[in-house]
Design a binder for these strands. Sequence first.
DNA 1: CATTAATACCACAATGTCGGAGATATGAGC
DNA 2: GCTCATATCTCCGACATTGTGGTATTAATG
Lengths: 105, 105
Amino acid sequence: MLGEFEQLVLLAILRGGTDAFGAGIQREIEDHGGRRVSLGAVYTTLGRLEQKGLVEAWVGEPTAERGGRRRRHYRLRAAGRRELEHSLATLRRMTRGLTPGLEVP
Amino acid sequence: MLGEFEQLVLLAILRGGTDAFGAGIQREIEDHGGRRVSLGAVYTTLGRLEQKGLVEAWVGEPTAERGGRRRRHYRLRAAGRRELEHSLATLRRMTRGLTPGLEVP
DNA sequence: CATTAATACCACAATGTCGGAGATATGAGC
DNA sequence: GCTCATATCTCCGACATTGTGGTATTAATG
């Protein structure tokens, strides 16, 4: 079963397109989620998702920016997409017919 | 933060109207979630939600059925509804703009 | 008192969270 | 061009919160 935060991380990866990486994922979730998120939490979750085969990663080239370690990029695997779809479908069915603000249209 | 299963339980309570109780909540989740759920998991979660003040409970009168202990009924408190709305709103924002099957319309 | 329906408890597994250590790039100053 | 200060990002380890199933217990009915 996917946890709540795992769902968010998976969604953030999708939003980042092919460029998703740790710090960017953090930003994505903070921007849309209206909640603070630590980098540690993000990386721990990414590691677990990778272990479960839901996500794959590779290290990129150095960027043009100031400094820093190379980025590790992430992408959903087919299984990850399936899990995510399943979770969201359940939520959609559970909210169907409820009053506005709750319904996930 | 609400966990994944907590969200489901809260939603199931809403769906059950004023009659929500343990076993009924289990059924609701299994019917819509397409996944097996144990009663123990449901009660443990209900207890925690109650402790956090998201849900309130009271014991009902004996039913007309064969036997059994009295049902314990559950209802969302304002805080519970707020938490749930917040979780779902986050999810909605995160899925907006993604391809069908993922978007939570 | 046997049977049935429901709740409560407990132990363990999986997820969530954070802070800080470490790695690796850049650019400034000499 | 070397060195070093600094910025950016990843990894690790410890602990808190949630998730799960199995089993026991309670309370009703005939």
